[in-house]
């Protein structure tokens, strides 16, 4: 037991021992910045597309003119923002049912799963929230998830394999982590971020396609260098914006995982349960069958999809490494 609790040395930036309240405050700050960057990225993309269209339409491609504020550019930015808001409203009203379908989770009653129900209710009480619905995924994989666009409509689900291989204290840590996602409104956050990223990818793709079409018909270069510069800027943006958006999305996702870990400690006042659970998950992750896919991977407690190679790029990961999470939790326990 004792051996399981001592942390292995972990390389990478060391997080100072700190209490969970300041850990949460710092995380909220980071997340706010990342989302602001994402919104700015979307607006700039909309603007650049509008601006390129206007420059395209004007007869002589005066690049000097385009340094003035472009009306079509503003319109593009507003249009992208508006579509984002509408898409968010649609997702918030029907996203929960879709996620339950995609993960294959079945709701269970207190009679069939009394311990899981009790643990969920304990954590709901600790968080001061209504008790979420409880679901189980019938698979040997070890994982857990939370959905619900608001705490009143939340569901917490765990896999059968997780129920079998964790003790009550560890299960409590995992459920507390999921309750942390519910309490911090992460499901809503990540849905909004996902919409922005999807929108940016879609619009960039459209721009690139229409450029290829337009390029063939009218690229016979009689209009000179101005056109080339406009074209270059647009292509550069359409390629880089989705990549940057994707990276920001994964960074937000990782921050929210850390935050949920810190919240779990706030709820249980016992980091050892979650640390123990993460160690079990880590020991198990190679042999576990895959559940979920790229569309649902961000809602689980550990990434359910295996990386292409173990040293896969940290920039494009939805979850921080388990070693880093355990390290931070151990520091919380020490603080």
């Amino acid at each position: 037991m004792n051996a399981a609790v001592t942390a292995e040395p972990v390389t990478g930036p060391r997080v100072n021992g700190t209490d969970f309240l300041s850990a949460q405050a710092e995380n909220r700050r980071n997340t706010r910045w990342l989302i602001l960057i994402l919104i700015l990225l979307g607006l700039i993309l909309g603007y650049v597309i509008g601006w390129a269209l206007e420059a395209w339409a004007s007869a002589d491609y005066q690049v000097a003119d385009t340094l003035n504020i472009s009306a079509l550019g503003i319109l593009g930015a507003l249009a992208l923002g508006g579509i984002g808001i509408i898409a968010s409203i649609v997702t918030f009203s029907s996203g929960d049912r879709i996620i339950m379908k995609l993960t294959g989770a079945e709701e269970v009653t207190a009679e069939t799963e009394p311990v899981l129900h009790n643990v969920v209710e304990e954590m709901a009480i600790a968080a001061g929230l209504p008790k979420p619905r409880v679901a189980v995924i019938e698979t040997e994989a070890l994982n857990a998830f939370a959905t619900g666009m608001s705490p009143q409509k939340a569901t917490i689900g765990v896999t059968r394999g997780l129920l079998k291989s964790l003790n009550r204290e560890q299960l409590q840590g995992v459920v507390a982590h999921e309750m942390g996602h519910v309490l911090n409104l992460d499901i809503r956050y990540m849905a909004a971020v996902g919409i922005m990223v999807g929108l940016i990818a879609l619009v960039s793709d459209l721009a690139l396609r229409s450029l290829r079409m337009g390029g063939r018909s009218r690229s016979s270069g009689k209009k000179g260098g101005g056109a080339l510069i406009v074209l270059l800027i647009l292509v550069l943006f359409a390629i880089l914006a989705p990549l940057a958006a994707q990276a920001v999305r994964f960074a937000v996702s990782r921050q929210r995982e850390y935050l949920a870990d810190a919240t779990a400690v706030q709820l249980t006042r016992n980091p050892l349960g979650l640390i123990g659970a993460l160690k079990v998950l880590e020991g198990h992750k190679e042999k576990a069958p895959e559940i979920g896919n790229r569309a649902t991977q961000h809602i689980f407690i550990v990434n359910p999809v295996k990386a292409f190679k173990s040293g896969g790029s940290a920039l494009f990961a939805t979850h921080p490494s388990l070693a880093e999470r355990i390290e931070r939790l151990t520091n919380l326990g020490r603080g």
């Binding site: 009790n118 304990e122 009480i125």
Partner: peptide, 11 residues
């Protein structure tokens, strides 16, 4: 579990 709930409610 009720003991736990009392503890968490108290917290």
């Amino acid at each position: 579990s009720t003991e736990n709930k009392i503890g968490f409610a108290r917290q």
